[in-house]
Write a protein that binds this DNA or RNA. Structure first.
Lengths: 221, 221
DNA sequence: CGGGCCCTTGATATGAGTCAAGGGTGGTGG
DNA sequence: CCACCACCCTTGACTCATATCAAGGGCCCG
């Protein structure tokens, strides 16, 4: 089945968001508004009663935002731009009209929601059974995306969130995240920049993600 | 918004499943078949390459099954009946036809999928930040369902899965689950039967679920 | 009645959390 | 433009929760 393609359907109106701006806040009216992320990174989080923030997800280019609030009156989380973003605002009503007119579009939309459910299920089940190192490497691989055609090519990926935010998201502490990243770096598998990283050995990361224990590799002479 | 109500729509064909039977297995053709669970309990799990099984979810009466595989050719998990079950088999095609004919039905279906995404997100985020006791109590409260009208009434809930399965699902070990349940029992907050339990103090459980630390309560003289 | 499996419980090991100090980076104001 | 300051990141020592290993007990099934 082909992917649900917005541009093909002429849906949505463009919307820019600057770093640090909220797209919406918890308890805002949802109004059946969905968003498609063209560029930039957004964090979805809840402000818990005790003041701690709980991170629901990091939204990347190509992801949809708001599919968890169709038919709900209120947003159940806040969305904050971690970088400047370009979005398409897509009212659900517009999609519904399309689905009335266009056969298959309903199937495509259902399939998109369905994939999202699957993604959440798998992610949750994986994280539950994984240790700290595995969680972090899986997170990094998610950020890095698919392997490039040329395996020798290095992959630069953005990491626009703080260590605190990463650790919240993974159910760890900032200290553990920092330690693990440092060890991955010492082993020469990634390079760390201020707001990003470079995959230097995807193979090593994939072995770690598959459950290989993480040990310090002695430096070559 | 009202709930998506199958009985009202005259959809689906009934289907019985005996304890121990598989409804489907991983990699089976999905054929766009959804199921609505009328009674009984089903576990959704993946058989990992290393032989360990990873539990995705426990499905209860009132839940839908298969909403994670709409538009996918294959099941990505196996479904096994933990008890005898009564299901309704609902082909997605039938729902799609309904959505063509009936205004709003499409919205109801989208809303149902959307709620499922939300449910997964919240559950995952909660489990990540919770310790062993909190996870277990949240799990028990999920099984027990809503509080009864009469607060004094005791709630009997089914627990048709093994400790091994519970611990897999929660990302713990059977030993930890057993210990924690024993402690809850010693404190008089639950009673344990072979294949079920009774909530004796919902208040205590809800405090634990909200983060109260679990300590042994000395027995009264 | 016997056997196997799962559940329970104890002792010990270990991975991750906590607490705390030091260092780098980016932002701000002089 | 530079200097200061605040915040976050890193790193170390120690603690604690949970996993691991292992033995005993109870339930269900044959």
């Amino acid at each position: 089945m082909m992917d649900f393609d917005l541009t093909q359907c002429q849906l949505g109106s463009p919307l820019a968001l600057a770093r640090g701006e909220h797209l919406f806040q918890m308890h805002d009216a949802a109004n059946g508004e969905l968003y498609y992320v063209r560029s930039g990174h957004i964090k979805l989080y809840q402000q818990c009663p005790d003041g701690v923030e709980r991170i629901i997800d990091f939204v990347q280019p190509g992801d949809w935002l708001g599919v968890d609030t169709i038919g709900e009156p209120e947003r159940h989380a806040s969305a904050l731009a971690l970088t400047d973003c370009e979005l398409d605002l897509v009212p659900y009503r517009q999609l519904a009209e399309l689905m009335d007119r266009e056969p298959y579009s309903c199937d495509l939309f259902s399939a998109m929601l369905s994939r999202e459910i699957e993604r959440q299920q798998i992610a949750a089940a994986t994280l539950r059974s994984a240790g700290a190192c595995q969680r972090i490497v899986l997170f990094l691989l998610q950020r890095a995306g698919k392997a490039p055609a040329d395996p020798a090519e290095e992959i630069h990926a953005a990491l626009p969130m703080s260590r605190q935010e990463i650790s919240d998201y993974l159910g760890l502490t900032p200290a553990t995240v920092s330690r693990t990243l440092s060890l991955l770096k010492r082993n020469g598998w990634i390079a760390l920049g201020q707001r990003g990283f470079v995959v230097q050995s995807r193979e090593a990361l994939e072995q770690l993600a598959a459950g290989m224990p993480l040990t310090e590799v002695p430096a070559l002479a």
